[in-house]
């Protein structure tokens, strides 16, 4: 697999660094096409803004967590991600009379692969997040503290429990969460990854 970053990887780096100068170029160059697409498909400018923002935040997380490297032009990759996100949103809203305007812009297989990587990353994150919310309040609090504070000694002190108890509880809560994820339908669909 070729992991050589594309020149457009600068946009991924800009997301990581919150570089408003480069990000404003990104909006200037790429947002118009997406706004047009959303507008032509039962949406408005606000919808387009949300779609773009959520897509960018997902890419940011993927880059942070998985060191995502962009190996194809940003334009095609980003456009396809936003487009699919908007179609999903329409489905969620139950808009029936959707007339999807397909455009010529075909996408190469290798680009599609990157798009899928990002989508699967997001689906997995959403699954984890929703299952996390199914945990009891105590588990949520403990895990949140664990991942934010990092040192288990400090977590124990913060929660007013012993170190041994905090450790035991943490793996218990994580175990419960693992089970919730494993038993979910969404996980069965994601399994191939």
């Amino acid at each position: 697999m070729n992991q050589k970053p594309h020149a457009d990887h600068i946009y991924i780096e800009a997301l990581l660094k919150n570089d408003s100068r480069v990000l404003s170029q990104l909006y200037e160059k790429f947002s118009h096409k997406i706004v047009t697409y959303v507008r032509n498909n039962n949406g408005n400018a606000d919808d387009a803004q949300d779609i773009i923002q959520e897509t960018l935040v997902t890419i940011y997380h993927q880059a942070k967590e998985k060191n995502f490297v962009l190996t194809c032009p940003f334009d095609a990759y980003f456009y396809l991600l936003c487009k699919r996100r908007w179609l999903n949103e329409l489905k969620k809203r139950g808009t029936n009379r959707v007339t999807i305007l397909e455009d010529e812009a075909s996408i190469k297989d290798e680009h599609e692969q990157q798009v899928e990587e990002t989508e699967i990353f997001e689906q997995q994150n959403q699954l984890f997040e929703s299952k996390f919310k199914e945990l009891g309040a105590k588990c949520q609090e403990l895990l949140k503290a664990t991942f934010k504070i990092k040192s288990m000694e400090e977590v124990a002190e913060f929660l007013g429990v012993t170190y041994g108890y905090a450790r035991k509880k943490k793996s218990q809560c994580m175990g419960k969460l693992t089970q919730l994820v494993k038993d979910s339908n969404e996980f069965q669909q994601l399994k191939r990854y």
Binding site: S24, Q49, Q53
Partner: peptide, 13 residues
């Protein structure tokens, strides 16, 4: 990051 994006979004969109 969201703050930056919201700002840019309303500016450009």
């Amino acid at each position: 990051l969201r703050n930056t994006l919201t700002h840019l979004g309303s500016k450009y969109i």
